[in-house]
């Protein structure tokens, strides 16, 4: 089985700096693999280990995702190879553009049976790319997939909906966005980290994907700001547990909440 797993390399949201005017800087943020994409990688690697075949990791984004540490981090989690589409021209690409770029890359990889994505990216979390990708590839696409079993005719999947679990069978190829509890992602061990350095990395440009023109953006970000902070009293209560508890209980009564 030939599996592609899509992972977004993105700035770590916990490194956001809020400037005094409320604008936001990500300049000092560390870039990482999306925390919810790790589960997709784990699911892909387990399917390969059980059924044979290969796993290709795929990531698109600005130039800076083509970084040795990020490459190694991705490959040490088990994929056999990595495809990067790293071009600054598409800075701040929207979901439609991203899905088009990924679709072109999946076509170029060729003869792919299954594409896995995370539930949502760590930064924007629009939970859209997998579905758009499936539609562009004209194959079945499902989100909220919490279990994948390979059957002769295709796959049997479980989906975690709001109030029910749905079991479906679908033909391959397909694109599946997996939930965060599908598997606990592994921590790479030393052997895999060393092995990662030897695995192939393919760097494709948009021209390689026969996307001569950068796809047109469909959405323009007009502003990005920190949410207005809510004023809080910020009373620090210290002391022995008994004293602290008495003091807090007193405040809670005064606030009228007990």
């Amino acid at each position: 089985m030939k599996i592609v797993v899509c992972a977004k390399l993105a700035p770590d949201a916990s490194d956001i700096e809020v400037r005094s005017d409320g604008s936001i800087s990500l300049d000092r943020a560390e870039w990482r693999i999306g925390s919810f994409d790790l589960q997709a990688i784990e699911a892909a690697v387990r399917l390969r280990d059980a059924h044979g075949g290969s796993v290709t990791a795929l990531s698109a984004g600005p130039q800076r995702i083509n970084h040795s540490k990020l490459r190694k981090d991705l490959l040490s989690r088990g994929p056999d190879e990595l495809v990067l589409v790293a071009e600054d021209v598409l800075n701040g690409a929207d979901t439609a553009v991203t899905a088009q770029v990924l679709a072109a890359a999946v076509r170029k990889i060729g003869a792919v049976d299954l594409v896995l994505t995370g539930e949502g990216s760590a930064d924007l979390y629009f939970q859209q790319v997998g579905l758009q990708l499936g539609e562009l590839l004209e194959v079945p696409a499902f989100n909220a997939v919490s279990k994948i079993e390979v059957k002769d005719s295709g796959v049997r999947i479980e989906r975690s909906l709001e109030e029910e679990t749905e079991v479906l069978e679908l033909p391959l190829p397909a694109v599946l966005a997996v939930t965060t509890d599908i598997h606990t992602p592994r921590l790479p061990n030393m052997k895999e980290i060393l092995l990662a350095a030897k695995k192939p990395v393919y760097e494709w440009s948009l021209a390689d994907l026969e996307l001569e023109n950068a796809p047109e953006p469909r959405v323009e970000a007009v502003s990005l700001r920190a949410p207005r902070p809510v004023e809080r009293k910020r009373i620090l209560i210290e002391g022995s547990p008994e004293e602290a508890a008495q003091s807090l209980a007193g405040y809670l009564v005064k606030e009228g909440v007990v």
Binding site: A13, P217, R218, V222, L224, R225, A226
Partner: peptide, 19 residues
């Protein structure tokens, strides 16, 4: 214009659909 949260609630983004 559409307002939504990004960066896990760390920021508010206003988007203008172009299409």
């Amino acid at each position: 214009l559409a307002r939504h949260m990004v960066f896990g609630g760390g920021a508010v983004r206003i988007d203008r659909p172009l299409a």
